[in-house]
Every structure is written in structure tokens, then in C-alpha cells.
């Protein structure tokens, strides 16, 4: 199978819309087909990784735990925009999985290196 470099660019908060969950599903599918997958989190997308989701009250399936399975899928390239975290009062310590924090310019360079970029 040909391996391509996929990047999912996540810019939406979780639960309010379905984008975050859809992105995660696409990540798992691409990884199941042994593609080279990375994830970028910008704008409200950084909220997806905020730890401590308790979704019982809104009666939706929580998917914070699923980010923990990404390592099993060999998905270890998670990039987070520093500026987006700062605007939201977040630091890397607030996130549920280890990530690489970088600037928007650096993220832009990462996007240039991809074969496929999917924006959510």
C-alpha cells in the first residue's frame, strides 16, 4: 500500500459541533490503513485536548479517552498552536496527551510537507 502523509487540521471545539469527533474517526481510519498521520490543533481546536471531559450531563459520548489510543495506532505527531492556547488561558499541562507546541508559522511549514491536508 502506498503511504501518504496525512494531516488533519482541527479548528473546532468538541461537542458543540460534530467536527472534532469526525476528525478523530478519519484519523483512526487513515491510521488503520497504515498511513503517515499527524494532527494539528489551532483556534478552538485546542479545546479538544483539554483534559477532564465529563459528558454524562449532556448525554453525549465523550472521546477524550480515545486520544490516548492514538499511540497504539502509531499516531504520535500532535502539533498544537501556542498562540491559540494562550488566547484561551491554556498551557500544555492542561492537555490530555503529550503534544508538540509550536508557532503558527511552524505549523504552516508542517502543512506544506503533507500529501493530503484535511481541515475540520
Amino acid at each position: 500500500m502506498t503511504t501518504k502523509k496525512f494531516m488533519m487540521v482541527n479548528r473546532k471545539a468538541p461537542y458543540g459541533t460534530v467536527y472534532a469527533l469526525e476528525s478523530l474517526e478519519v484519523v483512526l481510519i487513515a491510521a488503520a490503513f497504515e498511513q503517515d498521520v499527524s494532527l494539528a490543533f489551532l483556534d478552538d481546536g485546542v479545546y479538544q485536548l483539554k483534559k477532564g471531559h465529563q459528558t454524562k450531563g449532556i448525554e453525549m459520548k465523550g472521546f477524550e479517552k480515545t486520544y490516548g489510543a492514538l499511540e497504539d495506532y502509531d499516531v504520535t505527531k500532535l502539533y498544537v498552536d501556542q498562540e491559540s492556547m494562550a488566547a484561551r488561558g491554556l498551557t500544555a499541562d492542561d492537555l490530555c496527551v503529550p503534544v508538540e507546541v509550536m508557532s503558527r508559522a511552524e505549523l504552516g511549514k508542517m502543512m506544506e510537507e503533507q500529501d493530503v491536508v484535511l481541515s475540520f
Binding site: L28, K65, A69, Y73
Partner: peptide
């Protein structure tokens, strides 16, 4: 229970 997903075959065999 741990990850809220059923793993793909490749991931299952490895795990």
C-alpha cells in the same frame, strides 16, 4: 472501557 473505541485489527494484534 479504557479508550472508548474498538481497535482496528492491526492495533488489536499488537496490543
Amino acid at each position: 472501557n479504557e479508550f472508548q473505541i474498538a481497535p482496528a485489527v492491526r492495533v488489536l494484534t499488537k496490543a
